[in-house]
Each structure stands twice: as structure tokens, then as C-alpha cells.
């Protein structure tokens, strides 16, 4: 995983961290996520990714995001130390 990789949220594994850089998709999807604080620039941590919905922690809140919607969240994966 290169440092500059732009990948959908669903590609992160459990325990991985990243930074949200973009949300692609319709205005409905975008506004739904933005209103919840899932915004470009925020650090996101994947707490669970077991094939279905994704469990994330962002901004001190936890969210379950359906896989379809999570595909639209583009993140910058952080290199693990």
C-alpha cells in the first residue's frame, strides 16, 4: 500500500487508519455522510470489516456504514508502523 494510495473505505482492514479525502456519488449520499461528520480531512479508523457493513470510528463517534455507501468514501490509507 503506497502512501499516496486513494482507495475506497471498504479496502481498509480491521484496525487500519486513514484520512477521508473525497466522497463520490450523488448529492444524497454526500450530504448524508457530511451531516454525520464524515467529511474530507477527517481521520478515520476501521474497527470492523468482515465482508458486510463497515464499522468505523471518526471524530469520536462510531458508525456502521453499509458496504455500498462505504465504497463511495475515498480514503488515503495510512502506512502502518
Amino acid at each position: 500500500m503506497s502512501l499516496n494510495s486513494k482507495i475506497p473505505l471498504t479496502m481498509l482492514k480491521e484496525g487500519d487508519e486513514g484520512v477521508v479525502i473525497d466522497i463520490i456519488g450523488g448529492r444524497g449520499a454526500i450530504s448524508k455522510l457530511l451531516a454525520l461528520g464524515i467529511v474530507p480531512g477527517k481521520k478515520v479508523k476501521v474497527l470492523g470489516n468482515r465482508g458486510g457493513a463497515i464499522l468505523i470510528s471518526i471524530n469520536g463517534s462510531k458508525f456502521v456504514i453499509g458496504r455500498g455507501l462505504a465504497m463511495k468514501v475515498i480514503v488515503h490509507a495510512k502506512q502502518k508502523n
Binding site: G28, K32, L36, S61, K62, F63, V64, I65, G66, L69
Partner: peptide, 9 residues
């Protein structure tokens, strides 16, 4: 249609 959902825990 895709069920696009996001729920806060």
C-alpha cells in the same frame, strides 16, 4: 436500488 445506510453507534 442500493440500500445506502449509515447508522451511528
Amino acid at each position: 436500488g442500493e440500500a445506502e445506510y449509515v447508522i451511528e453507534l
